[in-house]
Amino acid sequence: MLSLTWTLIGFLLGSLPLSVWLGRLALRTDIRAYGDGNPGGTNVARAGGRGLGLLAIILDMLKGAVPVALAHYVFQVDSWPLAPVVLAPILGHAFSPLLGWRGGKALASTFGVWTALTVPFGPFVMGGSVFVFNKLLNTPGWAVMAALLTLLAFLLLTGVTLPWVVTWIGTAAILSWTHRADLRQRPQRRRP
Rank of each mutant, 00 (worst) to 15 (best):
M145N: 11
V86P: 03
V20R: 10
N43M: 02
A88V: 00
F131I: 05
A147H: 13
L4N: 06
P187A: 03
S15N: 04
K135N: 05
V113M: 02
W177M: 12
L137R: 03
G170A: 03
G112C: 02
A71Q: 07
P140T: 11
G159T: 07
I31H: 09
A26P: 10
F131A: 09
W142Y: 13
S129V: 02
L107K: 10
A65D: 00
A65Y: 01
N43E: 01
V165W: 05
L99E: 03
T161D: 12
L87M: 00
A106F: 10
W177Q: 12
L149M: 08
P192K: 11
T42R: 08
L156R: 13
A69P: 07
A108M: 08
G37L: 11
G170T: 03
R28C: 07
V144G: 14
G53K: 08
R186T: 12
D78R: 15
G48H: 10
G23E: 00
G122P: 05
I174N: 10
V125D: 00
L107P: 13
I31Y: 06
I90Y: 02
R189Q: 14
I90E: 00
V144C: 14
L25H: 07
G53F: 09
T5F: 15
P17K: 02
K105R: 15
L13Q: 10
P97C: 08
N134I: 02
I31S: 09
R191Y: 13
K63C: 01
T42P: 04
V166R: 09
V66W: 04
L175G: 13
A88D: 01
R180Q: 03
K135G: 06
V113A: 02
T118I: 03
D30W: 01
W101V: 11
L155M: 15
V125R: 03
L157P: 11
A143G: 15
